[in-house]
Design a protein around this nucleic acid. Structure first.
Length: 789
DNA sequence: CAGTGAGCGAGCTTCCGCTTGACTT
C-alpha cells in the first residue's frame, strides 16, 4: 500500500500526476466538492449565527467512503485541490468529512501539471487557509439565501417553479434591457459619399481609386448641394501618408474566450464547446477547460517557441506573458492550450478536430511576433469645397502571427476589406467617374447570443468558468429567454449619383436586422425581471456581485468575520422578502391596449396560466371576458392593438358538413379544421383566415382517403400486429411499438411468424436516440404541471 | 396531439460552484 494519498479535484488530473509521483503515492480524485448545504430546506441555521448545515452530496457518497478508507491506510494525506476559494473549501471539507488529523495532513498547490511543479509543491506544503475557506462559506451561504428566498416570492407572485439568483437574474436582466433598447431604437440616417476616380499610371495604363468623403451629411439637401459643387470641381491628390502599423495576437484562450471564438468560427453553442473540450481534456489533448487564466506555463512557452522556430523560423517568435483583465479572476489553472504544442492536429470527431485546431492556433499565435503593416492614406482635395476624400489601403509587410490565426470580432459591419492602393503622386489630377451619396442608417444594438452574453457576464465579474454554460441553460430552461432568429426587414434607402455631369435620384431597398441564434426575452422573463428590479434593486444591480466579491476578499484577508458580513446582508434583505411576499400584487404584466371597436370593451394583454393572452373585457364586468392566446412570435411588450384584435378572428365557423359545424382555429401544432370531434391540419399553403367551407371539406376528404388506405393488414389473435402505410412508407406496429419492414419484402406478403422474427431482430425499436454525435438533445421543456410524474 | 384563463389548496418547485457520469427513454 502506498504511504501517501494525494487528493485532487479531477480524475484526469489524478491520472497524470500519478505518473509523475511513482508508487509511493496513490492519487485519487474528489470529483469537485464532496458536500454542500443540505438539499432539503435552506440548510442554514439562522438561530445559530448562520451555521451551515452540510451534507455529503448523494452522488458523492461512494467516493467519500473510498477516500475515507484510503486516507485511514495512508501515512500522509496531501490535499491538492485548486488554489482558489472553492479549492481551499474542498480541501477543508475533505479534512472535516474524512476526519483527517492535522499532523499527517498537508495542503499543497500547483498551477501547472508538471513533475517539477508537483515535486516543488510537495516540498513546500502549508496548512489550510481558514480565512479563504470562510470567504467561500460566505459566498455559498449568500447564494443560498438569495436563491432560496427570492424563488418562493416568484412562485407566489408570478408562477410556480420559477427561480431567481445572484447570477441568473442579472443574466436575464441583460437580455430584457437589451431588447428594450432595440425596441426604443430609432435609426438615424446620414448620407455617406463615396467616389470612384480615374487616372493613368506611369505606363499609361488606366487606374481606378475608390475613396470616401471624410464627412457625412445629415440631410439629403446637404448631400445634393455637395454633388452639385462636384459637377464643376477639380480633383487633385492633396497628400499621401504612409505609416507603419502593428497588429498583436490575442492572449491564449480562457473558458469565456474559447466559447466566443468557437461560436463565431465553428458555430458551436456554449454547452457544445464545453462538451467537446471536456473530451479533449479527458483524452489528454488539452489542459483544463474551465479557467479564467491567460497564463501559460514555462513548459508551454518553451514548447511553443520550439514549434514556431521549427515551423516558421526564429523571427516569428515573440514570447509573451499575458495578464488577466477580467474582474474576480482566481487563476487556479493555466490558460486552455494543447498539452503538446507539436501536435498540430488530433484524432477524434470532426468537432474535436476543429476545436483542437482553434486552440492550437490561438496558443501558437499568442507567442508569435506582431504583424507589421503599412497603412497608406491618399487624400483628395476638391476645388471650392472644404471637405476631402480619403482612400486607405493596407499592406502586410511582415505577417507574424497572422500566419496562423486571426481573432474574429462580433462586429459584422467591419467587412470592407482594405487592400493595396495604386501608386500615385501628390498633386496628380483625378477624373471622377462617379460620386455617390448613399443614405445609411445607424444600427440597432445587437441582441446577445450565448457566447456574447457570457462575455458580458465575465466583464461584470458575474459567474465562473464552470457555471457559464449551466447558467445559459438555466435561463433558457426556465423559459426566461429563448434562442431564436430575427427575419430581415426591408428598408428603403436613397441614392444620389453624379455621373456624366448628371445627378440621378433613386430609391433602393436593402434587408436589415437579420439575426441568427440570438437570445430573446420571453414575457415571463420580462415580468420576472421588472418585478425583481422593483423590489430587489440591490441584488439585481450589475455591481452586486463585484461588491460582494470585495466583501469576500476582506473575509479572506481576515479583516472581517464571514458571519458578520452575512448578518449585515440578511438583516437588510430578509425584511424586504417578507414585505414583498405580503404586500405586492400578483404579477401578470398586464398592458391595456385600448377599446375593442366592436364591443366597446377594454382590450388588454397579460400573462395567463398557460402563457400570454389577449382579453376583451375585464373580470369585473358581468359578461365574461373573451380570451385568445398570443402567437409564439408575439409578446406582451410589443403587440399592437391591430395584431391583438386579429387574434379574435379565430376560431372561425365556415359552414356545415354532414350536419356538423366546420371550424378553423390555430392550436399548438398550427392551424387546423375541427369537424365532428376530429382535427385536420391545414397545409402551410392555406391561410386560416381565407379557407372556405369547400376547401375545408376537400382537406377532410383527402385525409379520410389516406386513413382508408392506412391499414394494409391486421394479424395476431387480438389483431395486435397491424401493417400500416406511414409517412415514410409501409411499417408494422405491435403493442404500440413501430417496426421497420426491411427493403425487398412486400408488406402484403408478411406473415405473423415473419413479423415476430422482425420484432426480435429490432430490439432497439421504440427507443428514441438521444445522442447526436455526442451532443445530448436539448432538455425537454415541460410545463410545470407535467414536470413531476 | 388540437385549449385552457374561476377558486380552493394538498405538496412540489429554487441558488452557485466544484467535478463527471447515466439504471437506457
Amino acid at each position: 500500500m502506498p504511504k501517501n494519498l494525494v487528493i485532487v479535484e479531477s480524475p484526469a488530473k489524478a491520472k497524470t500526476i500519478e505518473k509523475f509521483l511513482g508508487n509511493e503515492y496513490l492519487v485519487m480524485s474528489s470529483f469537485g466538492h464532496i458536500r454542500d448545504l443540505a438539499e432539503k430546506g435552506i440548510g442554514i441555521d439562522f438561530e445559530n449565527n448562520y451555521a451551515p448545515q452540510y451534507a455529503v452530496s448523494k452522488d458523492k457518497k461512494k467516493i467519500v467512503s473510498a477516500l475515507k478508507k484510503a486516507s485511514k491506510e495512508a501515512e500522509m494525506v496531501w490535499l491538492a485541490s485548486d488554489e482558489d476559494r472553492e479549492g481551499e473549501a474542498i480541501a477543508w471539507h475533505l479534512f472535516e468529512e474524512l476526519k483527517l488529523k492535522s499532523d499527517n495532513t498537508r495542503r499543497i498547490v500547483f498551477h501547472e501539471i508538471t513533475k517539477d511543479a508537483i515535486l516543488h509543491a510537495i516540498k513546500t506544503p502549508r496548512s489550510i487557509d481558514l480565512n479563504l475557506v470562510d470567504a467561500q462559506q460566505a459566498r455559498r451561504v449568500l447564494d443560498r439565501i438569495v436563491g432560496f428566498e427570492l424563488s418562493p416570492v416568484l412562485w407566489r407572485k408570478v408562477r410556480p417553479s420559477l427561480s431567481a439568483g445572484r447570477v441568473q437574474s442579472v443574466a436575464v436582466r441583460l437580455i430584457v434591457e437589451r431588447e428594450r433598447e432595440i425596441n426604443q431604437f430609432i435609426a438615424e440616417a446620414t448620407y455617406r459619399i463615396s467616389g470612384i476616380f480615374n487616372s493613368v499610371d506611369k505606363n499609361g495604363m488606366p487606374i481606378e481609386l475608390k475613396a470616401e468623403l471624410q464627412q457625412r451629411f445629415n440631410t439629403k439637401a446637404e448631400a445634393q448641394t455637395f454633388l452639385e459643387k462636384c459637377k464643376e470641381a477639380q480633383f487633385n491628390i492633396d497628400n499621401i501618408v504612409t505609416k507603419p502599423a502593428k497588429k498583436s495576437p490575442a492572449p491564449p484562450f480562457t473558458t469565456s474566450t474559447l466559447q466566443q471564438d468557437a461560436a463565431r468560427k465553428l458555430g458551436f453553442s456554449v454547452s457544445q464547446t464545453m462538451q467537446v473540450a471536456q473530451r479533449l481534456y479527458e483524452a489528454g489533448k488539452i489542459t483544463y477547460m474551465r479557467t479564467d487564466s491567460v497564463n501559460l506555463s514555462d513548459l508551454a512557452l518553451g514548447a511553443s517557441k520550439a514549434e514556431i522556430i521549427n515551423m516558421a523560423g526564429q523571427k516569428y517568435v515573440h514570447i509573451r506573458k499575458f495578464s488577466t483583465k477580467s474582474k474576480g479572476a482566481q487563476e487556479a489553472h493555466e490558460a486552455i492550450r494543447p498539452s503538446y504544442m507539436n501536435a498540430h492536429i488530433v484524432e477524434g470527431s470532426s468537432q474535436e478536430k476543429r476545436l483542437y485546431e482553434l486552440i492550437w492556433k490561438r496558443t501558437i499565435a499568442s507567442q508569435m511576433a506582431d504583424a507589421e503593416l503599412e497603412k497608406t492614406s491618399i487624400f483628395i482635395k476638391i476645388s471650392g469645397v472644404q471637405h476631402q476624400f480619403a482612400a486607405s489601403g493596407e499592406v502586410i509587410v511582415f505577417d507574424g502571427f497572422l500566419k496562423v490565426y486571426l481573432e474574429s470580432t462580433d462586429d459584422e459591419n467591419d467587412t470592407e476589406n482594405e487592400s493595396l492602393l495604386p501608386v500615385m503622386k501628390k498633386g496628380e489630377k483625378l477624373l471622377p467617374l462617379e460620386i455617390v451619396a448613399q443614405e445609411r442608417f445607424s444600427q440597432k444594438p445587437p441582441r446577445y447570443g450565448e457566447a456574447s452574453l457570457v462575455r458580458k457576464l465575465e466583464e461584470l465579474g458575474i459567474g465562473r468558468p464552470s457555471t457559464y454554460a449551466p447558467t445559459i441553460s438555466t435561463i433558457q430552461n426556465r423559459l426566461y429567454v429563448e434562442k431564436g432568429d430575427r427575419q430581415p426587414e426591408k428598408r428603403d434607402y436613397n441614392v444620389l449619383k453624379l455621373k456624366g455631369g448628371k445627378i440621378t435620384d433613386q430609391i433602393k431597398a436593402e434587408n436589415t436586422g437579420v439575426e441568427k441564434s440570438k437570445l430573446f426575452p420571453t414575457d415571463i422573463g420580462t415580468v420576472v425581471t421588472d418585478f425583481l428590479i422593483e423590489n430587489f434593486p440591490d441584488v439585481l444591480n450589475y455591481n452586486f456581485t463585484a461588491d460582494v466579491e470585495k466583501e469576500f476578499d476582506n473575509i479572506a484577508d481576515g479583516d472581517i468575520k464571514w458571519t458578520a458580513s452575512i448578518d449585515k446582508f440578511y438583516k437588510k434583505f430578509h425584511p424586504i422578502v417578507e414585505d414583498t411576499m405580503k404586500n405586492s400584487q400578483r404579477q401578470v404584466g398586464e398592458r391595456i391596449l385600448g377599446v375593442d371597436p366592436n364591443s366597446g370593451r377594454q382590450l388588454s394583454v397579460k400573462l395567463g396560466k398557460y402563457g400570454p393572452l389577449a382579453q376583451i373585457g375585464t373580470n369585473e364586468e358581468e359578461e365574461k371576458p373573451i380570451f385568445a392566446s398570443l402567437r409564439r412570435d408575439q409578446s406582451i411588450e410589443n403587440i399592437s392593438m391591430e395584431e391583438a384584435l386579429e387574434l379574435f378572428k379565430l376560431p372561425r365557423h365556415v359552414g356545415e358538413f354532414e350536419n356538423k359545424s366546420l371550424t378553423i382555429a390555430i392550436g399548438r401544432f398550427g392551424p387546423y379544421i375541427r369537424h365532428d370531434g376530429s382535427f385536420y391540419s391545414l397545409p402551410k399553403t392555406d391561410d386560416p383566415m381565407e379557407v372556405s367551407a369547400e376547401r375545408a371539406i376537400e382537406i377532410i376528404e383527402e385525409k379520410r382517403e389516406v386513413e382508408k388506405n392506412r391499414i394494409i393488414k391486421t394479424m395476431g389473435k387480438d389483431g395486435e400486429i397491424q401493417i400500416l402505410n406511414g409517412r415514410f412508407g409501409p411499417y408494422f406496429t405491435c403493442n404500440k411499438v413501430n417496426y421497420k419492414i426491411p427493403k425487398g419484402i412486400d408488406p402484403i406478403s408478411l406473415t405473423h411468424e415473419k413479423c415476430l422474427e422482425l420484432i426480435i431482430a429490432q430490439p432497439d425499436a421504440g427507443n428514441k436516440r438521444n445522442f447526436l454525435e455526442g451532443k445530448p438533445i436539448q432538455n425537454r421543456i415541460l410545463q410545470p404541471s407535467q414536470r413531476r410524474k
